[in-house]
Amino acid sequence: MKTALSQVAERLHKRRFAVTNNTEGLSGAGTIFYYEVDGSTVSSTYQGGRIRIGNQVGRVTGPDTFELLFQCLTLEGELLAGWSRGTVGVDHVGRTTLTFVWGWLSGATGGGESSYVELTA
């Protein structure tokens, strides 16, 4: 029997994701996210597109949900931070998908929704 933590870990741990939709945010084409899961702890690094470097830290909150705090440095030298709540899914070909509701905490205002898909070899 799978636990809530193992379901999120199974779909995120050591996997890479690309942005499919993020009209209100900075990450976009060329931004790649790399996730790791250790127990109930979720972390990631990301870069590409307008993002020079970024990282996230958070926790599993349910069978297919997690929450994160994120920070990044842009190519323009902006230092930004925010929060997000994510949901793990699976698309029609079996790739992991992520959908987020997010908002800025520092460096910008507003927020939005974004979607990501797993990059496969």
Score class of each variant (00 low, 15 high):
Thr3Trp: 00
Leu5Asp: 13
Leu5Cys: 10
Gln7Asp: 08
Glu10Thr: 13
Arg11Lys: 15
Lys14Trp: 05
Lys14Gly: 11
Lys14Leu: 14
Arg15Thr: 02
Arg16Asp: 13
Phe17Gly: 03
Ala18Ile: 12
Thr23Glu: 14
Glu24Asn: 14
Gly25Pro: 08
Gly25His: 08
Ser27Arg: 04
Ser27Lys: 07
Gly28His: 04
Ala29Asn: 10
Tyr34Phe: 10
Val37Trp: 02
Asp38Arg: 09
Gly39His: 07
Ser40Asn: 15
Thr41Tyr: 00
Thr41Lys: 07
Val42Glu: 07
Val42Arg: 01
Ser43Phe: 01
Gln47Lys: 14
Gly48Lys: 01
Gly49Leu: 01
Ile51Met: 06
Ile51Gln: 03
Ile53Thr: 12
Gly54Thr: 05
Val57Gln: 15
Val60Ser: 01
Pro63Arg: 07
Pro63Ser: 14
Asp64Gln: 08
Glu67Thr: 12
Gln71Met: 10
Cys72Phe: 14
Cys72Gly: 09
Gly77Lys: 05
Leu79Phe: 11
Leu79Ala: 15
Ala81Cys: 11
Gly82Gln: 09
Gly86Val: 03
Val88Ser: 06
Val90Glu: 15
Asp91Ser: 00
Val93Lys: 11
Val93Phe: 06
Trp102Asn: 00
Ser106Gln: 14
Gly110Asp: 09
Gly112Gln: 08
Glu113Ala: 11
Ser114Asp: 11
Leu119Trp: 03
Leu119Gly: 00
Thr120Gly: 11
